[in-house]
């Protein structure tokens, strides 16, 4: 089953997965795998660790299927578990050092003509943020979530989320300007 057809059968997909339909659960995985894997990848900066994390997250989803109310809820639940698990792994010091992006990681070409070097630098700067701030930025700019949902996912007050975003943007902007990759005017 491909994700497109799964989207059309959304109301049934979750129910089928709950009843043990492996094809339905595989379709659920395919629907959300990019999101979950990317959260792990941006947080941990390692593809192997990101895949381990994503696998853990989907195994947890499988065990909790009965408590998932809808596909939208599944998406929220997956983002929440992935982000918190990544923070947990980072705090366990297994991946504390912000490793450079692995060789061979291909960043897909953007639709507009952009500088891949700058993208890489932005991702590197993201990796220098503290785990909680990094999770906030990933959910905000990768997953395009609003501050209320980020606050709910990470169990932190909305004002803390806003503060993380503001301070992280300021720090990243400052480092980009300091490295002369951008001018202050470009970033205004």
């Amino acid at each position: 089953m491909n994700p497109e057809s799964a989207q059309g059968e959304e109301p049934l997909l979750l129910e089928r997965a709950r009843r043990g339909d492996e094809a339905a659960f595989a379709a659920l995985i395919r629907m959300h795998q990019a999101s979950v894997f990317s959260i792990g990848f941006r947080m941990l900066n390692r593809r192997d660790a990101a895949e381990d994390l994503a696998q853990d997250v989907f195994l947890q989803l499988y065990r909790k299927l009965d408590s998932i109310e809808s596909l939208e809820h599944a998406g929220f639940w997956l983002r929440r578990v992935a982000a918190n698990l990544a923070i947990d792994w980072l705090r366990r010091a297994a991946y504390t050092r912000a490793a450079p992006l692995e060789d061979g990681v291909e960043i897909p070409a953007p639709p507009t003509c952009e500088d891949p070097l700058m993208d890489r630098e932005l991702v590197r700067l993201l990796g220098e943020l503290a785990p909680a701030a990094r999770a906030v930025m990933v959910l905000r700019y990768q997953e395009d979530r609003d501050v209320a949902e980020i606050a709910a996912a990470l169990d932190m007050p909305v004002n803390t989320v806003k503060s993380h975003i503001k301070r992280s943007l300021t720090a990243m902007r400052g480092k980009m300007i300091g490295a002369q990759l951008l001018t202050a005017e470009e970033l205004s």
Binding site: I107, E114, Q142, R173
Partner: peptide, 13 residues
């Protein structure tokens, strides 16, 4: 613009 750049850099993989 900076947020747009960041959003592009953090495309899902």
């Amino acid at each position: 613009d900076f947020e747009n750049r960041l959003r592009r850099a953090l495309r899902p993989v």
